[in-house]
Design a protein around this nucleic acid. Structure first.
Length: 459
DNA sequence: GTATACGTCCGCC
DNA sequence: CTCAGACCCATTCGG
DNA sequence: CCGAATGGGTCTGAGGGCGGACGTATAC
């Protein structure tokens, strides 16, 4: 175990010229010493596909039973894990100090809290019903979720997956210094804005900020703003146990609004009409939709949990509002894991009569049922060809090519400028085509449409 | 010997 | 990020 | 009244677009 661990660590830390070769040698040396079953788990370890059927929650149950004799104490362990994000640390406290030690684990500045997550729903009336007839609806900004920790001039920023991204946003930290309390943990959505109009720029722009060294150039070209939507800790007080309306009030009282730092736009709604109108307003402002939050007594900050206290309502969940596209299958990529032997995804294109070509828009690998896989396999095998079809225009190289024949209905959130998809190439931006964000199969086969007749429908 | 292109991975969504 | 399917567990249904 | 069926909640493992990082191959 120790040798495997040390070698893997060495592999991870190897960098520079010839590093790939060195990494390979290290791993080969490890494999040579391993038994067949060890090889299996070493491979699974480095490919991050351990597939043991044991997740965090099973480990917490196990810890509870092992150190306290019963499963009931898992809640205590879970709480400590959710506010520290470090199960190894919780386990070591449990082993050394027992359950009391774990109970004493508190929120600490600099230690990320596991983020609370939202469920999704497509029908406004159901959302209201679920939340008890009334909800705090907030704009869902299309940016990056950031957990901010502050103690005086000490700042820590964490991404949704709890990566430390403090160095990514030096400008944001400066703005926060003027706006937020001196000792707190809160959450915001960071977006890139247009300085002259204040408009929110697309998510893609924010990605330009994911550089190793943020310079004045990045700060100038991709100026960010933060929309704060929750607070979990203030001046030594744990606010995660307080209901959402109270946390929102704390924010309203303690945040100084500037042109760069604001609270997430919110409205209390208690009927479908208001909810729908507010939703349209959000879309109009460049947001993805709404997050509807429970206003009830139990609406605490449930760290690490995906529940119905928060409900996402996005445009593309509603099929009649979503852009749907009838696209032609022109290729496929081999599936992995459970999809070995089937396709993992299909390469989808639309017909351009101007050039008489099929140009790609997206790959699609989700939305298929097990039946769909069998059925599609059967239909497509009849149309398989050896080489890319002469009229298919694709930068990507599929594992299998098909003659353009089958039309499927695909839905997605929006079109983005794409460096790899050829549809609309150069039309909107030079050296860019159009790609579909969050593509998925709707389940509808368009046997009624011929490949060249497929046309897009949009709301 | 340097510059550029390419392939792969990673972490956002 | 989305989606399908498996699994868990509590509640309801039917013999 | 108790076991089977049902259904909501949650988890797992498939898959997507995109921009940047980084190592390697190739061009000049």
């Amino acid at each position: 175990m120790e040798e495997a661990y040390e070698t893997l660590k060495k592999i991870a830390e190897t960098t520079g010229y010839g590093s790939m070769k060195k990494k390979m040698e290290l791993f080969i040396s490890l494999l040579k010493k391993a038994s067949p079953i060890e090889v299996k788990y070493l491979l699974r370890t480095i490919t991050e596909r351990l597939r043991l059927g044991i997740g965090d929650s099973t480990i917490m149950d196990a810890l509870s039973i092992a150190f306290t004799g019963k499963k009931e104490n898992r809640a205590v362990i879970e709480r400590a894990y959710n506010i520290s994000s470090d199960l190894g640390y919780v386990a070591s406290v449990l082993a050394k100090e027992g359950l009391e030690g774990v109970e004493d684990i508190k929120i600490q500045i600099g230690r990320p809290i596991r983020p609370m997550l939202a469920e999704r729903m497509a029908i406004p009336s159901f959302i209201l019903k679920k939340l008890g007839g009334k909800a705090g609806a907030e704009y869902k900004y299309d940016g990056e979720r950031i957990q901010v920790h502050r103690k005086k001039n000490e700042f820590h920023l964490f991404s949704r997956r709890l990566e430390n991204i403090t160095d990514q946003f030096p400008d944001l930290i400066e703005f926060l210094k003027e706006s937020i309390p001196e000792e707190c943990i809160l959450e915001l959505e960071a977006v890139v804005i247009d300085l002259s109009s204040g408009a929110i720029r697309p998510f893609q722009d924010l990605m330009n900020r994911r550089v190793k060294y943020v310079t004045r150039f990045h700060i100038m070209m991709y100026p960010v703003a933060g929309f704060i939507f929750d607070i979990m800790y203030l001046n030594g007080e744990d606010l995660t146990v307080k209901p959402y309306p109270e946390r929102r009030r704390v924010l309203e009282r303690n945040i100084k609004i500037t042109d760069r730092i604001n609270l997430a736009t919110r409205k209390i709604v208690d009927n479908v009409k208001d909810l729908e109108n507010f939703f349209l307003e959000a879309i109009e402002s460049g947001c993805e939709g709404l997050v509807c939050k429970s206003l009830q007594k139990d609406s605490i900050y449930q760290a690490g949990k995906r529940g119905f206290l928060w409900i996402k309502y996005k445009r593309d969940y509603k099929s009649h509002l979503a852009d749907t596209f009838d696209l032609v299958v022109v290729g496929a990529f081999y599936g992995r894991g459970q999809r070995t032997g089937y396709f993992g995804s299909l390469l989808m294109a639309c017909y351009d009569p101007e050039t008489d070509q099929f140009k790609t828009v997206c790959k699609v690998g989700t939305g298929f049922t097990e039946d769909d896989f069998r059925r599609l396999d059967e239909i497509l095998s009849e149309h398989q060809i050896d080489h890319k079809h002469p009229r298919v225009n694709s930068i990507l190289t599929a594992d299998i090519w098909y003659e353009p024949y089958l039309v499927l209905e695909i839905t997605g959130a929006e079109l983005t400028l794409s460096p790899v998809h050829t549809c609309g190439w150069d039309k909107i931006k030079l050296n860019r085509g159009l790609g579909l964000r969050f593509p998925r199969f709707t389940g509808r086969y368009r046997f009624d449409k011929k490949p060249k007749m497929q046309q897009q429908r949009r709301s």
